[in-house]
Design a protein around this nucleic acid. Structure first.
Lengths: 153, 153
DNA sequence: ACTTCCATGTCAAAACTTTGACATGGGAGA
DNA sequence: TCTCCCATGTCAAAGTTTTGACATGGAAGT
C-alpha cells in the first residue's frame, strides 16, 4: 500500500460513483428522466423539444446542424424533423436554395407549442440552478464546458 | 425589456447552449463518445464496462441493482449481463439463494479484462480531471451530485 | 396463517438510434 | 474548366433500449 501516509481521519473511499464520469452520467440521466416526464404531458420527446428550442433561437438551421447540436446522428435528426413537420410545428422548403441543406423554421403553431412547453422545462432547469450556491453557478457552467471540450478535441 | 439595467459591458447573450441542462448533456455526449471509442478497441460496450466496474467493487450485485446503478431498465441490464456471461466475464448462479435476485460475480477472465480496459478508460477520466483547476475539482464533484439529487427527488 | 404489497427476473413487442450505403450539390485547387 | 473532396439528405438494415405484461419469492401487517 502507501508507505508515506499514516492512516488519517476517516475519509470515504473514492469508489466509481464519485468519479467525474459517473457523476456526469448520473446528472444527465436524472435530467433526461425529469425532462421526459414534463415533456410527455405535452406530447413531445426530448429531441423534439431540443430541436424546437434551437430553431427558435437560430432559425434556418439544417437537419445536419440540428443533429450536431442535439448530439444525435443525421439520420435520427431526420426522424425528429419528420415528426415535428407532421405535427405542423416546423416547415422545410421542398427544395434547397443552396447546396442540399434545407433551412428549417418554426411555424406559428411551433412557436406557440414551444412557449407553452418552455414553462415546464424551465422549471426543471430552475430546480438545478436552485440546487447550486449562486456564486458557484458561473464556475460550474465554465467547468462543464471545460469537461466537454477536453473530451471533444 | 429591462428598464433598470443600462446597456453594460458586452456580455454574451445566454442562449440555450449556456444552460446547465445543455452543458450537462454536452459533457455526457462527449464522455460517451470518448468511452465508446476506447472501449470498442477492447470489444466492450459502455454498459458492459460499467457493469464490470461495479461488480469489481461491489461483488454480488443483482441485475436490478446493476440496472439502477448504470441508469438503464432491468430489461436492458439483462441483455448486458447475458452478453457478459456469454463472453465468460461474469457468472450468475442458476438459482437464487434468496428471493429472486441472482448475485453476479466476475470470473477470473472478467477481472483480467477489466484490468486491461481500465487503463484506457481511466485515461479518459484523467483528461477530464486535468481540464479542471485542481482546487475546483472537489467542488465540481459536489455540485454534480447536487444537480443529480435535485432532479431525482 | 392469511392477505397484501413490493421487488425481482424475464418474455415479447414497439420505439428509437445507430451503422452502412448511396446520390447530389458546391467549393478548393490543379 | 475539370477533378477531387467534403457536407448534406435519405433509404434500408441492424442493433439497442424502452414499454408493457406476467409470474414468482419475501416481507409486512392483519
Amino acid at each position: 500500500m502507501n508507505e508515506r501516509t499514516p492512516t488519517g481521519p476517516p475519509q470515504p473511499v473514492p469508489d466509481v460513483t464519485h468519479h467525474v464520469g459517473y457523476l456526469v452520467k448520473r446528472a444527465q440521466a436524472a435530467l433526461r428522466a425529469a425532462m421526459d416526464k414534463v415533456l410527455r404531458a405535452h406530447g413531445l420527446t426530448v429531441p423534439q423539444y431540443s430541436t424546437l428550442e434551437l430553431l427558435a433561437q437560430r432559425p434556418g438551421m439544417s437537419n445536419a446542424d440540428l443533429a450536431r447540436a442535439t448530439f444525435v446522428t443525421r439520420q435520427s435528426g431526420n426522424v425528429v424533423l419528420r415528426g415535428l413537420q407532421d405535427a405542423g410545428l416546423i416547415t422545410r422548403p421542398a427544395t434547397a436554395d443552396h447546396g442540399r441543406a434545407r433551412p428549417t423554421h418554426l411555424t406559428e403553431e411551433g412557436h406557440r407549442r414551444l412557449a407553452v412547453v418552455q414553462e415546464a422545462v424551465y422549471a426543471v432547469e430552475q430546480r438545478m440552478v436552485d440546487a447550486i450556491p449562486p456564486q458557484r453557478l458561473p464556475t460550474l457552467l465554465a467547468d462543464l464546458e471545460l469537461l466537454a471540450t477536453a473530451l471533444e478535441e
